[in-house]
Every structure is written in structure tokens, then in C-alpha cells.
């Protein structure tokens, strides 16, 4: 019974954290952009402009809601809902830290430790494109349709290379598909990034493409497609699309940290857990994971304001002719080394 209560609370907390981080990512994005462009950025709402996300949210809710005349009403509403749903679903399989302990019972900080965790992430990712496709198609607007088609073909193309680079990870972590096992196998500084630098690079590039971030934000490139798939959306439906994108960014950063940077592991964790109470260590481990996550969120923003957008044919060529062969080669070399040296 308690375990169900704990899981429910964990789900709620994760939901609120995802929304909170997404809201403050919009603020951080403006501040980072301002910093990189030598500006000040938002500073009017509250101290340092810290209330800016709330002001934005209120603005989004109060805007007039327009549903285009010849659009498909239900699908038009369904689109952003699916996109938001799939963005929030991934956090269920991520191990957020060492287990908490109450009354001698251990509670794992993971909603569902399923034995197919990595595949679950891939599955949710591949379903996530439906939100964009349905929304873009239902708008009955050719720019929206073009954006939706770009998004879907981009996602399908980059999923392959992403899956191949994950296979190399599975090879070096005893073939377990469970995320908690993958994180546990990276004790201390045994982070996968040191064994899989090429795989990490491929995964990172694919994560950018899957999260529709610059330099791969062609589905919504405003200079050619106005707003891409969300051209016709207004009010909070547009807000959901934009918001879900920030949640996707947060989740991709978390997945990158878990797969390649040891998740909540850091050097000295074993020493700390021997000398400090379990709950304190648990909170420190959560802090370690979030430090990595925040670094990657910053990295996402840093790249956005540094690198210009690709052309669409360049994007496709990069995905199919560079990343996919590289990731297959990486997988073969990893497998060969493991077999040859009997690791």
C-alpha cells in the first residue's frame, strides 16, 4: 500500500518538476541568449526578471483562442495534447537518485524499473512525433503541413542512428536494458562517455534532432515556414507545443546524463554512503544528477545561440550518410573489442 502511495507522490513530484524546469528553461534560454549576445534579457517582472515565466503563462492563457475555419477541430485539439503527453511520459523510467529510506523500508526513486527501460524511451520518442503530425495536418495550412512532414521524416531518420549508438551502450553494460542497471554499472568515474566517445557524440547530435532544437529546428524554421507545424495555433495550445519542447529538452538532458555520464553517480559516492545517513546521500545523488542535467540544458541553449540552422538536404545527408554508418561502425568496433579481449 505504502509503495503505491509513494509512487503516486513521486509521479506528482516528477510532473511538477518537469513543468517547473520547463518554465524556468524559457527564462534561462532568454538569459543565456542575452548573455551570448551581450544584452541584459528579461529583467522587469520580479527581481532579475524571475517572474517572467509566470507572466508568460498568464499571457498565454489570456490570449484569444482561434481554431481555423477549415481545420479538423478534434484533431487540432488532439495534436498538442499528444505532444505534451509523450513529453511527460519518459520520466517514468529514469532513476533519479539512490533510494530514500523511511522506517527501514527502501523506496527507489524511479517510478517503474522495467527491464526494457531504454526501449521504452525509444518507443515514447517514436510515438511523440504524432502530436506534431496530427497538429500540423489538422491545421489545414500548407506551412503547418510542411513543418509536420519535416518533423516526422527528421525523427525517423535520426532514430536509427540513436538506436545504434544505444546498442553500443548496452554492449558495454552487460546487455541490460534497464536504466537503473546502466546507471549502476557506471560507478565512480566509470562513465560510459569515456568508453563510448563516438557513440556519445552521435547520441548527442541525434538528441538535438529529436528535440527539434537548433541547428535542426527545421520543422519550425520561421524564416521559411512562418512557425512550422504550430503556425495556426494560438493561446495555450501554442503554449503546450512550446512547453512540451522544453520538457523534451529536459528529458533528453536527463537521458544523456543517465546513459553517458553516470546518472546520479559521482566519484566519492561510495565513501559518502558509508559515512552519512542514507537519506542525505540520496539527496546528494539527486543533486549530482540535476547538476549534469542543468549543464546539458545549458549546452542545448549554448548551441542554439551559436550554430546556424542546417539546410534540409544537409540534415538528411548528415543523418543517413554520416551518422548511421558511423554508429554502425561504432557498434561493430565495440562488439569486436569486447569479443577479442574477452571483456
Amino acid at each position: 500500500m505504502e509503495i503505491i502511495l509513494f509512487k503516486t507522490i513521486l509521479v506528482l513530484v516528477l510532473f511538477l518538476i518537469s513543468l517547473g524546469i520547463a518554465a524556468y528553461s524559457t527564462y534561462a534560454e532568454r538569459k543565456v541568449a542575452a548573455f551570448l549576445q551581450d544584452r541584459i534579457g528579461p529583467d522587469r517582472a520580479g527581481p532579475f526578471g524571475l517572474l517572467q515565466p509566470i507572466a508568460d503563462g498568464v499571457k498565454m492563457f489570456l490570449k484569444e483562442e482561434i481554431i481555423p475555419n477549415h481545420s479538423n477541430r478534434w484533431l487540432f485539439i488532439l495534436g498538442p495534447c499528444i505532444f505534451m503527453l509523450t513529453a511527460l511520459m519518459t520520466s517514468a523510467v529514469i532513476p533519479w537518485g539512490l533510494p530514500l529510506e523511511f522506517d527501514g523500508t527502501k523506496y527507489a526513486l524511479q517510478v517503474a524499473d522495467i527491464n526494457i527501460g531504454v526501449l521504452y524511451i525509444m518507443g515514447v520518442l517514436s510515438v511523440g512525433v504524432y502530436g506534431i503530425m496530427i497538429g500540423g495536418w489538422a491545421s489545414n495550412n500548407k506551412y503547418a503541413l510542411l513543418g509536420a512532414i519535416r518533423a516526422s521524416s527528421q525523427m525517423i531518420s535520426y532514430e536509427l542512428a540513436m538506436g545504434m549508438s544505444i546498442i553500443s551502450i548496452l554492449l558495454i553494460s552487460d546487455g541490460s536494458l534497464s536504466l537503473s542497471h546502466i546507471v549502476e554499472s557506471q560507478k565512480g568515474m566509470n562513465w560510459n562517455v569515456f568508453y563510448q566517445p563516438l557513440g556519445f557524440l552521435i547520441f548527442l547530435i541525434c538528441a538535438f534532432a529529436e528535440a527539434n532544437r537548433t541547428p535542426f529546428d527545421l520543422p519550425e524554421s520561421e524564416s521559411e515556414l512562418i512557425g512550422g507545424y504550430h503556425t495556426e495555433y494560438s493561446s495555450m495550445k501554442l503554449g503546450l507545443f512550446l512547453f512540451a519542447e522544453y520538457i523534451n529538452m529536459f528529458i533528453s538532458s536527463t537521458v544523456i546524463s543517465c546513459l553517458y555520464f553516470g546518472g546520479y553517480q559521482f566519484p566519492g559516492l561510495a565513501y559518502l554512503s558509508a559515512h552519512l545517513p542514507a537519506n542525505v546521500v540520496s539527496i546528494i545523488s539527486i543533486g549530482a544528477l540535476f547538476t549534469k542535467v542543468f549543464f546539458f540544458i545549458f549546452f542545448f541553449m549554448w548551441v542554439r545561440w551559436t550554430i546556424p540552422r542546417f539546410r534540409y538536404d544537409q540534415l538528411m545527408r548528415l543523418g543517413w550518410q554520416v551518422l548511421l554508418p558511423l554508429s554502425i561502425a561504432n557498434m561493430l568496433i565495440t562488439g569486436g573489442v569486447i569479443t577479442f579481449f574477452n571483456l
Binding site: N115, I116, L119, Y120, M122, G123, L125, S126, V127, V129, Y130, M133, W137, L145, A148, I149, S152, S153, M155, I156, E159
Partner: peptide, 23 residues
């Protein structure tokens, strides 16, 4: 395992292409 592969392959890839064609 079968369930998630079913979702990735059918719902995630094949049906996306199908929707793509219809659109």
C-alpha cells in the same frame, strides 16, 4: 519486450510513414 518492439516498429515507424503518405 515484444510489446515495446511492437510499438516502436508498428506504431512508431510504419504508421508514421502511413500517416505521412495519407497527408
Amino acid at each position: 519486450f515484444l510489446a515495446i518492439i511492437h510499438i516502436i516498429v508498428y506504431a512508431g515507424a510504419i504508421m508514421v510513414l502511413m500517416l505521412f503518405t495519407v497527408m
